[in-house]
């Protein structure tokens, strides 16, 4: 039996990682953001982190947080 059109057109990819690698960083609970363990620099400003990308390209779930 033919597949539904949406299933035919679905883009298939390997299961994404759900947990990023955060060694070298710690979560600052008082201030609510990640920082590097050695310098205390915010993770999001750390040039070596890949940074958030648009939906479906990385592990962010912002677009899907309507339901999980």
């Amino acid at each position: 039996m033919k597949k539904h059109l949406l299933l035919e057109k679905a883009y298939v990819y390997p299961l994404p990682k759900t947990t990023p690698e955060m060694s070298g960083y710690k979560f600052d609970y008082r201030h609510g953001y990640w920082v590097t363990e050695d310098t205390g620099e915010p993770f999001v400003f750390d040039k070596s982190n890949p940074g958030p990308r648009s939906k479906k390209c990385d592990i962010e779930t912002g677009e899907d947080q309507k339901g999980e």
């Binding site: 949406l6 299933l7 057109k9 298939v12």
Partner: peptide
């Protein structure tokens, strides 16, 4: 609705697709 689908060891997502009317008329809907 967002269609994020689990397929055993893979995942699938339905993006917006450009499709000819003829293909739609002959598809499974």
């Amino acid at each position: 609705d967002s269609a994020v689908l689990r397929l055993e060891d893979k995942e699938a997502f339905v993006y917006s697709n450009r499709v000819k009317g003829g293909e739609i008329k002959n598809s499974h809907l």
